[in-house]
Amino acid sequence: MRIWSLHPRYLDRQGLTACWRETLLAQAVLEGATRGYTRHPQLERFRAVPDPLGAIGDHLAGIADEATARGYRFDRSKVHHRSDPALHLEVASGQLAFEWEHLLRKLSIRSPESAAQWAGIDLPDAHPLFAVVDGPVASWERAGPPAGESDPSQS
């Protein structure tokens, strides 16, 4: 499960669709509607806020907004709850940099044209749910850097 902190504009078609599906799964987990993935580390940051379902709903809404901007039709009725007022979670710059490198590696294989489009960006915009603060890769992040690469938060 990858619930991107990056703005959905950077995701290719496959990535945007996968993020939508995986975040819907996260919503089901937070609602107690599934027994799988209940201990998934990516959910820690959502469980840490007063309104986890609102936060995950706001994340889904950001993905749906990007889908709409591209002419796709994601079923917004699947977003069960939104926060009111809108929540803003923090994401550390190191986490954002880590995810950015991870996404660019994926895009270079799966969608080289998308990777080329975003080449040269050091630190991308965050998903609208997140406010960027200085800091390292998140403690809940389990995907380490590939062998031979250093942690981007340490550079």
Results as ranks from 00 to 15, higher is better:
M1F: 14
R2D: 14
R2N: 12
S5Y: 15
Y10D: 01
R13A: 15
A18N: 12
W20E: 07
T23D: 01
L24T: 05
V29G: 03
L30T: 00
L30A: 05
G32H: 08
G32R: 07
A33G: 11
R35H: 09
Y37K: 10
H40F: 04
Q42R: 09
L43T: 02
R45L: 14
F46I: 06
R47T: 05
V49T: 10
D51A: 06
I56M: 08
H59G: 01
A64Y: 02
D65P: 04
E66L: 08
Y72M: 07
R73C: 11
R73E: 13
D75V: 04
R76S: 00
S77E: 13
K78T: 09
P85R: 03
H88V: 10
L89T: 04
E90P: 01
E90T: 13
Q95Y: 12
L96W: 04
L96I: 07
F98Y: 10
E99G: 02
L103M: 08
L104C: 02
L107E: 06
I109K: 15
Q117D: 08
D122N: 15
P124N: 06
D125N: 13
D125H: 15
L129T: 12
A131E: 15
V133K: 14
V137R: 14
A138K: 12
S139A: 14
W140M: 04
E141T: 12
R142Q: 11
A143W: 13
P145D: 11
S153E: 08
Q154V: 15
Q154W: 15
